[in-house]
Design a protein around this nucleic acid. Structure first.
Length: 629
DNA sequence: CCGGGAATCT
DNA sequence: AGATTCC
């Protein structure tokens, strides 16, 4: 017991956070019927009419006019049209417009704070703790001196927060709490609710979208709270109402993180409601769903959630999928993959980063008893993009050049690895994704790794120690060999090292064999095999090779480069740092605050907290805020 | 043809 | 590489 308290304290200090119970302020923002709203912005003449967004044979979302006819999410087109013959349907398979809008929303939210976590395209968690605290700090500073020498907000009129009880949040409140929490969170959440309103106003004014929002001291409650009043509304959940909110959910499947699978496990144990979870001992719970999940669900059932808002940044992978009834011919596979690859390279070009790893996904039709019911599981294969297929922007200032045919050939190699085409096959889905990218800010010019990279860049494209030297013993069982050789090299490729095998050999890296894939390639020549002849073919035999194991030198080199973890280390040590993250944080200081919290917020707060600057003693409100700084 | 992604954990 | 979850 004493031990855990000790740990709690130390971790709080490490995070530079005070020992206040509900110290954080989290906003969950959810754009109302996102796809439908985006389509309405694109085609304003659609406003007011029942509108659905269609993907394949599904209406994946619809506006509220359509919902009034009883149309639900993911309803079939037929059913939807039956309910509402006038329903306007717009194709939404191409997510580009939604991605773009999502990026605009992210950008807008980043004006408030860098602590923005995306959940899908239309939801965001925003940790506004520091925004709330800065707001109070600024007020506090002003109450001490009439003129600001600091770079803080210059308010038209000075005012102070001298009356905590009269401050009420904007929007709805879940349940009416009898008493204020002694930690001061009610006041902080009230400020947060005004910030949430401001975010929503900005999104409406600048992007034309309405949102719903939840405001609470953790992500769980913010998300659940935001769903209580929709659309275009916001809801504050106080910590003291957490248990009540969770109880009111009823079914366990309403708990975020409890999907179909976990719900099934719980149901099988007669654990149906959130209250059931609460009554079930942890020991019994973790038998069924695993230790970590059980612990999390138990906490959730009480409204407890310590998870931080994790800034999202760029996606870790960029992918595309194409679902269909049935594809059984290699030629059709190739043409579909070709189309996917075209779009994928466009997406990657838009993203700007350079991909170094590609993954192919297939879904095989369930050949067992029920063809219609059970959709086959997905299987995937990935490999590093060989150096000479990694796009470069040499010669062109804009965009990177992809060698479509060669990459397609590589993708077909992956396909043959995952599908045995010598036997009949029935696929219902093909997917392609880039799953790794070169380091964004690349290495400093003085970095050794950078030097090496430049050196090797001019060397031969293909020199993996002659394939002739290897036997074809792997032909029969590629997977077993795969495992054998990959057993302890889960960490893939760093581009510096794939680029020159010569270099690797010279410094006596543990060399890796490259014969594993040969048998596969010869098994069934595909059209691409034929088209991509001669040296290219030999080229690709080696390219599909999984990435080499990390060596000590490689580890050392990768440690040299600027990496997120290094940046975080800087932050933890609280050292002055020139890292981008640190700069970013600094930028969200008073200046950013001023520019993003408009006057009307000030007015609202000012109104709720009448100025009382004269001779009241330091008020209670201050300490809540100041303690948080 | 129950969509098309993306993240996390194992 | 797969399973699961989320939207």
């Amino acid at each position: 017991m004493g031990k855990s308290i000790q740990m709690d304290i130390s971790s709080d200090y490490q995070n530079d956070q005070p020992l206040i119970e509900h110290s954080k302020s989290i906003v969950h923002l959810d754009v109302d019927c996102f796809y439908a709203q985006v389509e309405t912005v694109r085609s304003p003449e659609l406003r007011g009419q029942p509108l659905g967004v269609q993907q394949k044979n599904l209406v994946v979302t619809s506006n509220y006019e359509a919902r009034s006819y009883g149309i639900k999410k993911c309803m079939s087109v037929e059913d939807a049209l039956h309910l509402c013959p006038n329903l306007i349907l717009i194709r939404g398979e191409d997510l580009t417009p939604y991605r773009r809008m999502s990026a605009k929303i992210s950008e807008l939210l980043h004006q408030f704070t860098p602590l923005v976590e995306k959940l899908g395209l239309d939801e965001n968690f925003i940790d506004v703790t520091s925004v709330v605290n800065e707001y109070a700090t600024n007020i506090s500073n002003q109450s001490r001196s009439s003129h600001n020498d600091q770079n803080t907000i210059q308010h038209e009129s000075s005012f102070a927060l001298h009356d905590k009880q009269s401050f009420k949040p904007i929007g709805e409140i879940f349940s009416h709490s009898e008493e204020e929490c002694p930690c001061g969170c009610h006041t902080r959440l009230a400020v947060a609710s005004k910030i949430a309103m401001d975010m929503r106003n900005k999104i409406l004014n600048e992007l034309g979208l309405t949102c719903s929002a939840g405001i609470a001291h953790n992500k769980l409650l913010a998300k659940l709270g935001g769903a209580l009043n929709k659309p275009n509304k916001q809801t504050v959940v106080y910590p003291c109402s957490a248990a009540q909110l969770l109880s009111s959910l009823g079914s366990v499947s309403k708990i975020p993180g409890v999907g179909r699978r976990t719900a099934e496990s719980l149901t099988a144990n007669n654990i149906l409601t959130v209250v059931d979870v609460r009554k079930t001992p942890l020991e019994r719970l973790q038998v069924k769903i695993g230790k970590e999940l059980a612990r999390k669900i138990k906490d959730y059932a009480e409204g407890i959630d310590d998870a931080p808002v994790k800034p999202s940044g760029k996606p870790q992978s960029i992918g595309l999928e194409d679902g269909f009834k049935k594809v059984s011919l290699v030629d059709e596979v190739e043409s579909r993959l070709s189309a996917l690859l075209r779009r994928l390279t466009e997406l990657a070009a838009e993203d700007g980063r350079i991909p170094i790893c590609i993954k192919l996904t297939v879904r095989k039709q369930d050949s067992l008893s029920k063809p219609s019911f059970s959709t086959g599981k997905r299987e995937s294969r990935q490999c590093a993009l060989p150096q000479h297929l990694i796009p470069s922007n040499k010669g062109t200032n804009r965009g990177h050049v992809y060698d479509h045919l060669k990459i397609l050939t590589l993708v077909m190699k992956l396909f043959h690895r995952v599908v045995n085409v010598s036997k009949p096959f029935h696929l219902t889905l093909l997917g392609l994704a880039f799953t790794k990218f070169q380091e964004e800010k690349s290495l400093g010019k003085c970095s050794i790794a950078s030097f090496l990279r430049k050196q090797v860049a001019v060397q031969s494209v293909m020199d993996i120690s002659s394939e002739e030297g290897f036997s074809d013993t792997s032909l029969g069982s590629p997977m077993s060999i795969n495992q054998q050789e990959r057993s302890d090299c889960e960490e893939d490729n760093d581009e510096e090292f794939r680029e020159n095998k010569d270099f690797r050999n010279k410094v006596q890296f543990q060399s890796y064999s490259c014969h594993r894939i040969r048998g596969l390639d010869r098994a069934t020549p595909s059209p691409s095999d034929i088209r991509c002849s001669g040296e290219d073919d030999e080229d690709i035999l080696s390219e599909i090779e999984p990435s080499p194991k990390k060596t000590k030198l490689e580890v050392w080199l990768s440690g040299r480069r600027e990496s997120p973890s290094n940046e975080m280390a800087d932050l933890r040590l609280n050292t002055p740092s020139s890292s981008p993250i640190s700069k970013n944080l600094l930028q969200t200081g008073p200046t950013a605050f001023k520019s993003t919290i408009p006057v009307d917020l000030d007015k609202q707060v000012n109104h709720s907290w009448p100025a009382n600057t004269s001779n009241k003693k330091p008020n209670d409100i201050f300490k809540y805020f100041i303690a948080n700084k």
